[in-house]
Design a protein around this nucleic acid. Structure first.
Lengths: 297, 297
DNA sequence: AAGTTGTTTTTTATGGATAAAAATTCACCA
DNA sequence: TGGTGAATTTTTATCCATAAAAAACAACTT
């Protein structure tokens, strides 16, 4: 049966809102709550029902929001709020990228399903979805082959990334001066400078900044295939660097500086400067990835 | 339950081999047959069992191959040899590309499953697989949105195609003179000339030639993401032009001529000629697609 | 000992069942 | 009359069962 992670997560989020007094005494309407949490009204009603049952609110009037203090114990444990497919994704990514899974390994849906404690259909869906990343290949009526997260893969990936990034950067630089994206770029530049100032203890924040920056560059001239490709990059890097923390601070510091040069080049509207700065940044990103592939932590 | 299309197709193919006397009196071993047909021995045994049952061969000795003439009636009908997933694919592609399905339409798995007479899991798998083509988007816990096979889609597609093709063509032209691919290109050129001579009645053959040519260009410097992207192109064009035959002969004739110019440019090793010829060919391919989108047959 | 055929086990493809979540419908009221 | 709460219907996510196909194993033959 379907998991009730949507309900449990919504429940926890509601408790949070109550604790932080973002939900005040006359409880908001179900529709308002629904919009706030991004779930259906059906789920909200289930949450309210549960809150009532536990005596956290009084249902009849609903004017008394906190009938009693919210206790840490009221929250559902985090595992129970994670959708099944995310759970499968995590485990499979770990199995593929982190473990010692060799290139050429055959994937057995049934065995993985047993190992991870889920039904085969979940595994199947992930494999189909994931096959677009170029790390898996299907043999009909037989199984799947894991191609391996290899140097060749990284090189293929970066060749495309460079093509796309240069194309987008050029188009970005050529934009009209009135484009609102220039403003956004300035904001991002400031965020970079802020982070640079506190790099010692905030270096983890780089990753989201990185993402925002590269997405912004693509925004000037959107192309769905480029966006899709950037999804692949984000996905792969997210998992890869999650388990590979070697030199993280140093890496991020260097990338931050490169970004700033790249941003300034864009702001200058000087195409050749842009190409040099973007190229330099991507080269060093590639080197970083290759290094970590050859000498895994 | 799983369909037995693999068995039925293997059975038909075996009958074919017998009729064409490619299987002679002392029947080949099960393993030899297995390799020949690309199925498992289990399936071959089932085929042989069925042939025996129907009296087409005599099992005890297996020396008498044609115990009786093969009758047209012995063949399983074609529909029964088509794998379920291909069946689903065909129907869904027709629904999306050919019918009057508007951009923004919500896709209902259950309804489609009923409409096509299959289980929802098949629909789901197709949708997940197909979502990488950029025509569908998923809303978790809700449904899918069909983005529409629109002009914007075609433009996005061709922008990438041009980038990839120029990149591959350049690298092809820069290959060493000893590369075996030059030989292949010459062969392909001859095939083009042959087809050009008989274009009046063989114009349908262009499509496979087109495929071979563009794949060959990519072979000089393979990149899995480019290959994957070319799969998308092939897939979309296959279905689109299958239902859009307007001016087919004329279109193919023009493309053939463009290919020849492109091939000659490659053979000349002259990079700027290559770029011009490739660019010209892709532009006209784009125009053709856009026209057919705006004025569907 | 390699290649065959016969048998058993494992795995994939596909339909179907069901709880959760979403969507829709209904009734009511300020 | 639009917004709110309640009830009902529809759809998705997920597991499970089973036939088909593949793979592994065993026994035999030349």
């Amino acid at each position: 049966m379907k998991t009730d992670t949507v309900f449990k997560r919504a429940f926890n989020r509601t408790l949070d809102l109550m604790v932080r007094s973002e939900i005040e005494d006359p409880l908001p309407s179900e529709n308002a709550l629904r919009r706030r949490l991004g779930v259906s009204r059906t789920t909200i009603r289930k949450v309210l029902g549960e809150l009532d049952q536990r005596g956290v609110i009084v249902a009849t009037t609903r004017s008394q929001v906190e009938d009693r203090q919210v206790l840490p114990n009221d929250y559902f444990p985090d595992v129970e709020t994670m959708p099944r497919n995310l759970h499968i994704e995590r485990q499979l990514m770990e199995w593929m990228l982190r473990g010692d899974t060799k290139p050429g390994t055959l994937i057995n849906e049934l065995e993985l399903a047993r190992q991870f404690g889920v039904a085969t259909s979940g595994i199947r869906e992930f494999l189909i979805r994931f096959s677009r990343f170029g790390l898996l290949e299907k043999r009909p009526n037989s199984g799947w082959i894991f191609e391996g997260f290899t140097k060749e893969f990284a090189l293929d990936l970066f060749e495309i990334r460079v093509m796309f990034e240069l194309r987008s950067a050029r188009l970005f630089a050529k934009q009209s001066d009135h484009s609102p994206l220039w403003e956004k770029l300035e904001t991002l530049k400031r965020a970079h400078l802020d982070l640079l100032g506190e790099i010692d203890h905030r270096f983890h924040d780089f990753s989201s900044l990185d993402n925002r920056f590269h997405r912004l560059v693509n925004e000037a001239s959107p192309n769905r295939f480029i966006d899709d490709f950037y999804d692949i990059i984000t996905f792969i890097f997210h998992y890869h660097y999650q388990w590979n923390k070697r030199d993280e601070k140093q890496r991020n510091h260097a990338a931050l500086v490169e970004h700033l040069a790249y941003i300034d080049a864009l702001l200058s509207h000087d195409l050749s400067r842009v190409e040099v700065a973007a190229g330099a940044h991507l080269s060093s990103a590639r080197e970083t990835l290759l290094e970590s592939l050859l000498a895994p932590s």
